[in-house]
Amino acid sequence: MRNIGKSYKEVIALNDISFDVADGELFGLIGPDGAGKTTLFRILCTLIVPDQGEARVRGLDVVEDFRSIRKSIGYMPGRFSLYQDLTVQENLEFFATIFGTTIEQNYHLVRDIYTQLEPFKQRLAGDLSGGMKQKLALCCALIHKPEVLFLDEPTTGVDAVSRKEFWQMLKRLKKDGLAILVSTPYMDEAALCDRIALMQNGRILDINTPQKISEEFVGVLYAVKSSRVYDLLIALRAHPLVLSCYAFGEYLHVTLAKSEDSKELESHLQNQGFSDLKIHLVTPGIENVFMQLLQQTDEK
């Protein structure tokens, strides 16, 4: 069992971050833009040097042994970073060659993905659709048979169907024993990872399985809806029983300490003149936990 352990600190962009990822694990870094996800990826991919702490990829130090690490990792940067003026096939060929391999040799690794690209293989990469570009980028990151895969926001700017397909591919790759680190700003994708780290302002707020993280929610969550959304928000935030309240789609998500409080809240709101009120209990998701964690750190 080869363990990949990383722990290091960095002053501003990343602050005292530590975690481990095992082989065959799909590890998600969840956080908004500017949380430090890309910086973290670049350190792990040996592109930048951390100011503090140390990080190891497959037991190799990212500063000392960066050359050996580079042979065994696949990296897909956040921005589409292939040669737009080369065709699909030329891109894949180029990346295979610079890693000292050929498409034929490792075709089995990318077969599932590449078959979808095959009809367009003579097309310039710049002319592909967003989802196709990401598939090609994934192929290029996989073609040299890496043991660790780093995917920095692979699904940002990609349509819902392609996103779904993309995550199915990651699931399949994981079965081959690859350790996969993926970052995403989308909370719904977090649930698809084995374990996730919630990140904000260069700090990790929490690391656990998506299931466990959802269970960490403190209090009970209600969804409230009325036609006068803004007035409702003000009224809810003013109420002493409401721990937090924020907009979530067309509903307002309200956190209460216990479920008995909801009856009292409802009557209070009806007295305030909210006639078309709808209130129901919801199961908290990762996003709700994330918001709660954010609120806690803000209060600190």
Binding site: L47, R67, Y75, R79, L82, I98
Partner: peptide, 12 residues
């Protein structure tokens, strides 16, 4: 274009 990142991460 960010391709430098990929080139650097390769064994080149």
């Amino acid at each position: 274009l960010g391709t430098m990142e990929l080139l650097l991460v390769s064994p080149l």
